[in-house]
């Protein structure tokens, strides 16, 4: 809709005599995902709602970044914009050098609900992406079988989704997103609908998986523990309209496991996050009360 306007405050790049690979951004030279001054506005019956308000952020290749914030803060909308499912009102999202205007198969997405195709077996669900991209049936099924082994569901390869538990379905959804070998994986509260025990197992699985798939991951959650456990960086968002409040680096060593949940460094970080979120949550609550 609105093209990115030239920012007069940004220094112009120096002249070069030799052709060099174009720099994606002067502030974050190697960022793979760049969100610049992004606003997203929704039409509602009583006017318009600003879901995302002038957000800028950058994600480096291979980084695991979490977006945390109170519900309704626009974190899912922001993620959808990175997926090309939501059009910017202002500003833009650039992934791997190209602006996001529609979904792209090099970007994978896992939703809060598995959204598996109910008419397809586990194997065919995972093979869907490669098939859609024109791979041969044999090739697609081979990719699917490898992923099924990785998520440990070999016994259920020909089962239909409704026969699987919620956790298993979500594992299939993750495998399906990985089948196109995305360079960026977007996850929208993927474990939010699971019970606490399953969620803990899934988090450990994701940590293991991450080392094998070599993708950049952006992860939306409202669970601080989950965000810190998994991420290199945690971005804390304000109550709606969504803005990024704090950008916290998680300096905890990897490989991690749920054992870090009692580490003093972890606890200090968590306290910081909780303070921020509590203040924001209160603001959101007061805003809601002021409206009604």
């Amino acid at each position: 809709m609105v093209a990115m306007m030239h920012n007069p405050l940004r220094p112009t790049p120096p002249l070069r005599l030799v052709d060099a690979p174009p720099e994606p951004s002067s502030t974050a030279p190697e960022a793979i995902i760049r969100v610049e001054n992004l606003s997203i506005v929704f039409d509602v019956p009583r006017g318009e709602v600003i879901a995302v308000d002038r957000v800028s952020l950058a994600v480096m290749p291979g980084e695991f970044v979490s977006l945390v914030g109170p519900s309704g803060c626009g974190k899912s909308t922001l993620l959808n914009a990175m997926a090309g499912l939501e059009r910017p009102f202002e500003g833009e999202v650039i992934v791997a050098g190209k602006p996001m205007l529609a979904p792209r198969p090099d970007i994978g997405m896992v939703f809060q609900q598995p959204h598996l195709f109910p008419w397809k077996s586990v194997r065919r669900n995972i093979a869907h992406g490669p098939r859609a991209l024109g791979k041969s049936k044999t090739e697609a099924l081979r990719i699917a079988d490898d992923l099924i082994e990785m998520i440990g569901l070999t016994k259920f390869a020909s089962a239909y989704p409704h026969t699987l538990s919620g956790g298993m379905q979500q594992r299939v959804a993750i495998a399906r997103a990985l089948a196109n070998q995305p360079r960026e994986l977007l996850m929208d509260e993927p474990f939010g609908a699971l019970d606490a025990q399953t969620r803990a197992v899934m988090q450990d699985n994701l940590l293991e998986l991450r080392d094998r798939i070599n993708a950049t991951i952006v992860f939306v959650t409202h669970d601080i523990d989950e965000a810190i456990l998994l991420s290199d960086r945690v971005l804390i968002m304000s109550a709606g309209p969504g803005r990024i409040l704090r950008d916290l680096s998680v300096g905890l060593p990897r490989p991690r496991s749920s054992a870090i949940l009692t580490d003093p460094a972890y606890l200090a970080l968590k306290r910081d996050c909780l303070d921020l979120i509590r203040t924001e949550g209160r603001k959101a609550f007061e805003q809601m009360e002021a409206v009604t």
Binding site: I107, M109, L116, H128, A132, A177
Partner: peptide, 18 residues
């Protein structure tokens, strides 16, 4: 039809006709 299914299919690169 579940909008989530359509979005999931879109993200996987499903062509229009399919």
């Amino acid at each position: 039809v579940d909008r989530g299914l359509v979005r999931a299919a879109l993200m996987l690169g499903t062509p229009r006709r399919q």
